[in-house]
Amino acid sequence: MSAVLELTGFVLTLGGWVVIGATLKNSYWKVSTVHGSVITSSSLYENLWHSCAEDSIGISNCRAFDTLLALPAYIQACRALMITSLILGMCGTLLTLLGLKCTQLGSNSENAKSKIAMLGGMVFILAGLSSMVAISWYAERITAQFFDSFYGGTKYELGYALYLGWAGSLLSILGGIFLTCSACKEKHRDYKYAATRQGKDARIYIKQSETVTSAKDYV
C-alpha cells in the first residue's frame, strides 16, 4: 500500500512541477478588464516578464520589461519565488527517483530509500508553497488595484495562468504530503517489525532458559 501511495505522490508532484513551469511561461497572468472601459476593441495582458497588447483581429504586440530595477518589488519577488519553486521541484524529482522502491537507483536499503523519499516529499512541499505565495501575492495586487477607486492606471482581472498556477501548487503540495506519509508509514512498519522480532527472540530466550532450568532440577 505504501508503494502505491509513494508512486501516486510522485506522479502528482511531477505533474504539479510541469504545470508550475507552464504557468511561469504563460503570458496571461492578468488581463485588462472591460468593466467601466469605453475602448473594448483591444486588450492588454501581462506576466512577470512582458506586457502585450492585442487588437480586435487577434494581432499581438509584446514588449519585454526593460530593466529589473525599475520593476515593482512584488514582481521581482514573484519572479524569485517562481524560479525557486522550479529549482526545488527539479531537486525533489531527483531525490524522489532515488527514493522510489520500484527503482534500482541509489541505495538498496529500504530504510535509506524511505528517508530519501521523505526528503523529496518535503522539498516538493516547499516548492508548492513557494509558487503558491508568488501567485497569491500577484493576485492580491491585481484585486487591490481593481477595487481601488483612486487608482488611475489600467485595471486588470485575474488571468487563467493564475488558476493554472494554483492547481500546480496544490498538486505539488499534495504529492509531497503523499510521499512523506508513505515514507513515515514504511518507517513505522519497520519499527513494528523490529519490535515484534525483538519480542519473539526474547520469548525464545526465556523458553530456552526455562528448559535448561527444568533439566537442572531433574538432574
Rank of each mutant, 00 (worst) to 15 (best):
V31T: 06
S42V: 12
N61H: 15
T93G: 10
N61W: 13
Q76R: 07
L68C: 09
S41A: 13
V31D: 01
G15S: 11
A73F: 07
N61G: 15
A70G: 12
F65G: 08
K25F: 13
L95V: 05
H35V: 14
L7H: 11
Q76A: 11
L24R: 05
V4R: 12
S56V: 08
L97M: 05
L71Y: 04
K101N: 14
L88K: 00
L12Q: 03
D66L: 09
H35P: 03
L48V: 07
T13W: 00
T8L: 09
F10R: 01
L71D: 00
S37G: 11
G36K: 05
Y45H: 02
L44W: 10
F10S: 00
G106S: 04
W29H: 02
T93Y: 02
S32W: 04
I87D: 05
L81M: 06
L105C: 11
F10A: 02
C102R: 14
T103V: 05
L98D: 00
A3Y: 09
V34R: 09
E6F: 03
L95E: 01
A70V: 11
T33K: 04
T93C: 09
S107Y: 03
S60R: 06
S60C: 10
R63M: 15
R79Q: 12
Q76C: 12
A73Q: 07
A22D: 13
V11M: 07
N108T: 13
H50K: 15
S43Q: 13
A80M: 07
L24K: 07
I39V: 15
I75T: 03
F65C: 06
W49E: 15
S32M: 08
E110W: 12
T84A: 13
H50W: 11
K30E: 15
A22C: 13
E110N: 14
P72H: 00
A77M: 08
N111C: 13
L44Y: 08
L12H: 06
L81E: 05
L12N: 01
S60K: 08
F65A: 08
E46G: 05
C52Q: 04
G89I: 01
N108M: 11
I87A: 14
E46M: 10
Q76G: 09
A80V: 04
L5G: 10
N47C: 06
L69Q: 12
L98Q: 03
I20Y: 04
F65V: 06
A112T: 13
V19S: 05
N61M: 15
T8I: 10
S51K: 11
C78H: 04
G92C: 03
L100A: 00
T84D: 04
H50P: 14
S60W: 06
V38H: 12
K101T: 08
G99D: 02
I87H: 04
C52Y: 03
S27P: 09
W17D: 04
A77L: 10
G36V: 02
S42A: 15
I83K: 07
C62Q: 02
L68V: 12
L44A: 10
V11S: 05
A80W: 08
C91T: 12
G89F: 00
T93N: 08
T33D: 06
A73V: 10
W17P: 00
G92E: 01
L86R: 04
A112H: 11
K101Y: 10
G15Q: 02
S42I: 13
V34Q: 11
G106E: 00
